[in-house]
Design a protein around this nucleic acid. Sequence first.
DNA 1: CGCTGTTGTAACTGACCAATCACAAACCTG
DNA 2: CAGGTTTGTGATTGGTCAGTTACAACAGCG
Lengths: 188, 188
Amino acid sequence: MPSTGAAIRSTAEAQRGRITAAAVRVFARTGYFATPVADVASDAGVSPAYVFRLFGSKLGLFIAATAHTYSRVADTMTQAGEQCPSPQPDDRLDAMTMAYVALIEDRNLILMQAHAQSAASVPEIRDAVQAGLGEVVRAVAVVSGAPAEAVQRFMAYGQLCHLIVQTDLGAVPASWAKSITAGIQHHP
Amino acid sequence: MPSTGAAIRSTAEAQRGRITAAAVRVFARTGYFATPVADVASDAGVSPAYVFRLFGSKLGLFIAATAHTYSRVADTMTQAGEQCPSPQPDDRLDAMTMAYVALIEDRNLILMQAHAQSAASVPEIRDAVQAGLGEVVRAVAVVSGAPAEAVQRFMAYGQLCHLIVQTDLGAVPASWAKSITAGIQHHP
DNA sequence: CGCTGTTGTAACTGACCAATCACAAACCTG
DNA sequence: CAGGTTTGTGATTGGTCAGTTACAACAGCG
């Protein structure tokens, strides 16, 4: 496709979206430091050089992927809460919990969050993660109407999901592992 | 040659211990992929070549640091539980919670765990983390005598501590952040 | 004193990778 | 179609780093 003409061009904005989606997929697998930009580029079907042109640097790319991830999570929580017929905070938190567990089916979002957190020693990434978490926590608190400590508990179990997915605890048959994963469905 | 046949402590074993301790410190700061072995070596005051000699590879070094970290955590939990005068599971879990919060004062152990988890895409690291978690969970369950779901909750809030320390949530003044950090003191 | 094993390092290598730049091809406007 | 803008790539570069090798210093032991 490079040598002889006839390439269909698209707008930069569309490519930005495609590349961000690819970045979430690829960074979710191997994290920030272990992922070459070239891997994201090839997953998105463009050249590495173009990724640098659109995002400036690897850091810029990762931050875009991080922001996109938290936005999607916050949207999912908001939707789940608003679609819940009951106005009771507990019911709405339960609906959100189920929606979050459903996110585990696609491991990308949850692993991307975990990797973003672990790269928070980079100040710009830490800022992006703080912003993203704020978005999620506010969405959960406002839409559910639950008190602070229930929201805290919700987040704690969300972090437990990260642990389970990251270390593939669902595949560990030992009884201690079962006690940690109990009640949290996780497909193989 | 000692006359009593007491075990001679080889200098190499001592260096191994020093280097493992340095590895925990340094890997806790920057994680597996972003940390050059040379950084660990210079923190331990030896040459990079010697680290490779003793640990075989960067991966071997990281796994040693990971195992050491989880062992120390498990020991801390066991001690906290056994030093608690009450035999009630809830009291003992509370004691362990306080001991774990105290670990946050020294951010090394908690950040090392977080980084080990996030590098679990490497199979050998995942295995080491699973083994370490098993050690911790068994210690908590056995010494506290608490039921599985209380142990699960204990681990969930432990993961929440990781999040708070990783992203420095204690320094975020917004109210959503306060609702997440409430009850979990954290001073740098 | 040689002989052997252990501790430790300096110097090197080969691979990988972030970022840049010059250039090409398509699109738009008059 | 002339001229300018946007989309996109191949080639390169400079730096970093995991792992190796060859060698030095030293202790124990006959």
